[in-house]
Design a binder for these strands. Structure first.
Length: 561
RNA sequence: CGGAACGUAGCGCAGCCCGGUAGCGCACUACCUUGGGGUGGUAGGGGUCGCGGGUUCAAAUCCCGCCGUUCCGACCA
């Protein structure tokens, strides 16, 4: 493709609205343009990448026996009423105004609808049906370019099985296919599994990548692969040691010390010697939550422990309940339920608030001074703590969900009456699974993981072109001749070549090439051409090498393997 | 949906406080120049200042309403 012909509107400056790298570069490289909040048009360069991603997905889905469908985005609302998901989705579901249709945010209902009409016998299963299509979700807050949009492309697959063992098999096939897909795309990913309870249910895995633009916070152990959403993640944290002797309570005047940091500085004690207090209101009753040192209360874990929705107490409530303001609250004399993190189990000689402003109490023995105290895992893990499964250091970071595989079971087939006749002659609901991948997210995450300050760094698998051929001075006859010949030759050799045949300054072309990020740049300049050579630059490393025209093809084959 | 910011040429921005001729850089057009990291110059084209209303002799500028976009939060099958 000649760059003088293809529409690639590159931007020198960073568009005002773009913040995360993938968004900035997709706009700057002329891959896409916005049409509205969370709505993007793909331009030729961006669409080439999308097609490569979709083709990789397609190949791996076909390899596990998937069959590609093309399903309507426009769905009769009544189908969605059958499963109660009109209500479940709420405002996320787009509705058509002048007819009773909705825009499909996913396709479980449509697949189940067809399955119920078609599938009659256990003999017709298993099936894997998939589609790669546009989905619509009325996101309250679209953000980060293509990472959270109102319209996006998704590969959705659905498995139909006659037995739970069959579902396990279909699920495992998808697990393997997903690993191949993301690996082929060059993504460094990890899997948050059901064992870690990220989704709270059984039989689901999220495929995620580490990215600053991410929306989920996860704990991940590189050594053994343990990964869990920070809402449920655990770690090996030392429990406070119980001293053989419990000291007596001691009221200490601590003016202007609200935080744990201030307290340890003021009293010259260690963080582990403090018990931090948080008051929550649960079922309209106050509960004191004690954490070791500066540990953060994990409200998801708290909710699980109390099996009820907690909310932090308001400042006025604090004063009323404890007689003190936040920063001076503690277990001694607290009227109400007291629970503590496991790290504090039976701790003694601790410091905590005195329930009297500007006072703390030392020598607290939870066993002695907090009657009826209960212990739960309530803390939020942080980077550097020990992995619960292998004990090595874990990291906590934000991540983006790229794909999700899920054992649905009979939720949809039950609701919609999609049944089959089993071998024993009984009618049973079809056992289903659903498996999604966000196509734009794969592209954007790749860029999040592979860019530098100059632009994108494509690998061969996703690059819109393999080779960027730069004719440096397109007014000089030898350069024109040589670069035109190379263009023909490399194209004939099967490479996708982007030929910068524009009449522009060398620096202009170099900067554009680095921004667009094709893996290999072949630079045709007058001086080196006189020696029968061209320069080959590898985008990933910045390495440049002069290669003679006769050896060029072999050289490219080597670096672009 | 709560909090905040922004909306002026294709893009990035100044002008607004203190009302009076709409500006800068890049991009674009023509010509010259340069030709291995966004070359230098000359001459040009391009604007309902987001929309609507109000105040005023006069509004990009002040006031009210709306819309749009982004950021933080809530939400995220």
């Amino acid at each position: 493709m000649r760059q003088s012909k293809i529409f690639i509107p590159t931007l020198k400056e960073v568009p005002n609205d773009a913040v995360v790298p993938s968004h900035v570069f997709m706009l700057r490289a002329g891959m896409m343009r916005p049409l509205g909040a969370g709505i993007y048009s793909f331009l030729p360069l961006g669409y080439r990448v999308a097609k490569k991603v979709m083709e990789i997905i397609r190949q791996e889905m076909d390899a596990i026996g998937g069959q590609e469908f093309h399903l309507p985005a426009l769905n009769p609302r009544e189908i969605w009423e059958e499963t109660g998901r009109v209500e479940a989705f709420g405002d996320i579901l787009f509705s058509v105004k002048n007819r009773d249709y909705v825009l499909a945010p996913t396709h479980e209902e449509i697949i189940t609808y067809h399955a119920r009409k078609v599938v009659r016998s256990y003999k017709e299963m298993p099936q894997i049906w998939y589609q790669i299509q546009t989905k619509f979700r009325n996101e309250p807050r679209p953000k980060s370019g293509v990472l959270r949009g109102r319209q996006f492309t998704m590969k959705d697959a659905y498995s139909l099985d006659s037995s739970w063992e069959g579902l396990d098999k279909s699920y495992a096939l998808h697990d393997q296919a997903y690993r191949k897909i993301f690996t082929r795309c060059g993504l460094k990913f990890f899997v948050v599994g059901a064992s870690s309870g990220a989704m709270g249910g059984s039989g689901s895995e999220e495929f995620m990548v580490n990215a600053q633009a991410g929306e989920d916070t996860v704990a991940h152990c590189e050594h053994c692969g343990y990964a869990a959403n920070v809402e449920v993640a655990t770690s090996r944290t030392p429990v406070v040691t119980r001293h053989p002797q419990s000291k007596a309570n001691e009221l200490i005047h601590t003016p202007n010390t609200k935080s744990i940091d201030e307290l340890i500085a003021f009293l010259n004690i260690k963080e582990e010697e403090c018990a931090k207090s948080r008051v929550y209101i649960i079922d309209e009753k106050p509960v004191l939550v004690l954490m070791s040192g500066n540990d953060e209360v994990n409200e998801t874990k708290l909710q699980k422990a109390l099996s009820s929705e907690p909310r932090p107490a308001h400042p006025e409530e604090l004063a009323e309940i404890t007689g003190a303001d936040a920063g001076s609250i503690g277990p001694v004399g607290f009227k109400g339920r007291i629970i503590a993190d496991l790290c504090l189990k039976e701790g003694n000689n601790l410091y905590s608030g005195a329930n009297k402003n500007d006072y703390h109490i030392g020598g607290i023995d939870l066993k002695r001074d907090a009657e009826g105290i209960e212990y739960f895992d309530l803390r939020t893990v942080t980077s550097g703590e020990g992995c619960p499964s292998c004990g090595k250091e874990m990291q906590v970071f934000t991540a983006i969900e790229l794909g999700h595989i899920f054992k649905l079971g009979t939720k949809y087939s039950d609701a919609m009456g999609a049944t089959f006749l089993d071998e024993d002659g009984t009618e049973k609901p079809i056992i289903m699974g659903s498996y999604g991948i966000g196509v734009e997210r794969v592209m954007a995450c790749y860029i999040e993981q592979h860019h530098d300050e100059r632009g994108i760094i494509w690998n061969k698998a996703l690059a819109p072109f393999h080779i960027h051929l730069l004719g440096l001075n397109m007014k000089k006859e030898p350069v024109i001749k040589a670069s035109e010949e190379l263009y023909t030759k490399l194209t004939a050799a099967g490479y996708d070549v982007l030929f910068d045949d524009r009449e522009a300054q060398a620096g202009f072309k170099f900067n554009d090439a680095d921004l667009l990020g094709m893996p290999v740049q072949v630079i045709v300049g007058e001086k080196k051409l006189a020696e029968g050579k061209v320069e080959v630059k590898l985008r990933a490393t910045g390495e440049r090498e002069d290669v003679s025209l006769t050896e060029l093809e072999a050289y490219i084959q080597k670096v672009l393997r």
